[in-house]
Design a protein around this nucleic acid. Sequence first.
RNA 1: CGGGGUGUAGCGCAGCCCGGUUAGCGCGCGUCGUUCGGGACGACGAGGUCGGAGGUUCGAAUCCUCUCACCCCGACCA
Length: 489
Amino acid sequence: MVKGVTSQKQDFSAWYTDVVTKAGMADYGPVKGTMVIKPYGFALWDNLKEALDKMIKDTGHVNAYFPLFIPKSFLAKEAEHVEGFAKECAIITHTRLRSAADGGLEVDPDSKLEEEVIVRPTSETVIWSMYKKWIQSYRDLPLLINQWANVVRWEMRTRLFLRTTEFLWQEGHTAHATAEEAEEETLKMLEVYRTLAEDFLAIPVLTGKKSHTEKFAGAEHTYCIEAMMGDKKALQSGTSHNLGQNFAKAFDVTFQNTDNVEEYVYATSWGVSTRLIGAVILAHGDDKGLRLPPKVAPYQVVIIPITRDEESQQKVSEFLSPIQKNMSSSSVRFNVDASKNSPGFKFNEWEMKGVPLRMEVGPRDVENETVVLVRRDTGEKMFVPVSDLKEKIPALLDDIQQTLFNQALQFRKENTHTVSTYDEFKSIIGNDGGFVRCGWDGTVETEAAIKEETKATIRVIPFDEKPAGLSCVYTGKPAVHEVIFAKAY
RNA sequence: CGGGGUGUAGCGCAGCCCGGUUAGCGCGCGUCGUUCGGGACGACGAGGUCGGAGGUUCGAAUCCUCUCACCCCGACCA
């Protein structure tokens, strides 16, 4: 029995909130919809960020930073883009406060801005206003820039990590000489995201294209990685957009090609956010709390000394000293919990926090020159000779990483159903939930009707679709695409 | 923006219907001691403008009016 945490079965959504707060990942901020990422949650983000940043740089991109504030007029330059974001923008209208009669503060009306400023919901517009200045010739291309930043989207309903008013992310913005090159870039970065999700976060993802309805406002088309969470709902975990010449035209960004002809450049943008932390929690967590993949876990091993008195404390600590040195030198991230809490309390606490491997060390272990290792993913308990630790710990961490991935993959397989009739479709979505794979006639109308009737949306048109010979699950017409439907976060 | 709910100690709540000593309980927190291989125990202790503003009353956490905030569920979104 886990104290203070709703079971997944009882209420998955309450479970999520309980775990996020009890594990010390995040807390609510004072302004509605805002969140504080606490040190333990931020450590996970740091590890994720480090891995992704390396991949972004290895694929030829450089980091830069663009301003938080954007002239309001910029947003309107790309027609579709405005539609997408206008409804959720924070706007700066004044720049000063003054003392009010009641002793508080009020907006100083004299400080009203000539042109109002918006807080970026995404940075395409500022970045393209700058790219106009920076790009003249084909020699300036490709321009491959990424930024790590915060963005603000004033959402109605928010949830820790999954949808907050302000969130952290990385947004890449690239400019290319040809449409082919832009498309190649879009797919390349999607592949980076797939690697991040699968190899680091141990979350299997479906890759493919978004339907027109679901694509990014302002993009020609959007690719995505889509994952199944523990409640069988889908979570869009990363997107990569081919923006075509939409922003180049909106911001008049042209270059001279080798034939001395002026052309609009081709653009891409791609991003993943702190939502991925939510994905890790939702994909791997169980009733005991988090289960973190070793590659991004803040601590890979937690050591719990078990002692009776000062003498045993002394002995255990001496016993542990070379073990710790060893782990440090092999770059294992570990933490010794020497707090006054009881061992049982610590076991539960660190299970809640999802540490992949627990090491218990007590007087008996000191006698036997062994330690007790317990896996968070399977609960397996092992008595391991100290001399084996140097090899055993990295091997176990690798195995836990792999096991988490396999479990999630297995779960997705079990809950993905290929259907050919709308009755089957409704029965799956309405009862057990999960991913439904079926034919779609490609029309916005059908997509909308299904959403209206079942709440399920097209999550992705997978790259491995085989629409030939299929008929639309809703209209019975020949299918244009084979798609994945699911209820989504 | 619609529907629902909650504001009383750091957290979770009781008290409110039916106004009346010094506002209570659990957890947590502090000191000391005993404990320590699956959420230990005892003793003592600290901690409150009862979300805010008005009003009714001899007297308001409790009744009335207004207001603010947050959470959950729907429509929109990474």
